[in-house]
Amino acid sequence: MSRSGIAVSFNLNGRTVQETVPAQQVLADFLIERGVAGVRVSCDQGVCGACTALVDGCPIATCAAFVFQVDGCDVVTVEGLSDSDDLHPMQRSFVDRFAMQCGYCTPGMVLTAVALLNRKPDPSPDDVRRWLAGNVCRCTGYASIVDAVLDAARRRHDLRERT
């Protein structure tokens, strides 16, 4: 294996990252080392979704991806969801609906839910359950999260109606 590393260039939350990284460097580790706290590692096996980031709009498990795989991509973590100090509407709904307890799963949940609404702006409760099935939450019993996502969809819908 080459020790010299791989040059990568990608967009992270709106800023360009250009670095040479070891071939086997895991994306989650890379992001956490650079202070991206919204990426949280729990299972480290690609099953819990706590480490989710959006790569070109798709939720992926960063614990199960290498850095070189996102070369040329647009990577968004929860820190990059909104470009102002305001919360993204999905974050707002999570706060208003108390859709978190310990909060460890929350950034991953929010990102996966954002991706869902981008695909499917008016999801049914069942869509939400199926879409989020790869994100584990041990605290909430999930019900409040489903409510929050549907609430965010409703708000987006209302906004569209008005404009």
């Binding site: 973590t77 820190e79 929350t106």
Partner: peptide, 21 residues
């Protein structure tokens, strides 16, 4: 009443501090 959780904003923004951090 149900005022917003005092840790909600940090948790939803990825800014909450855990031992792991």
């Amino acid at each position: 009443t149900a005022p917003v959780r005092t840790d909600a904003l940090a948790k939803v923004a990825g800014a909450a501090l855990y031992t792991v951090d």
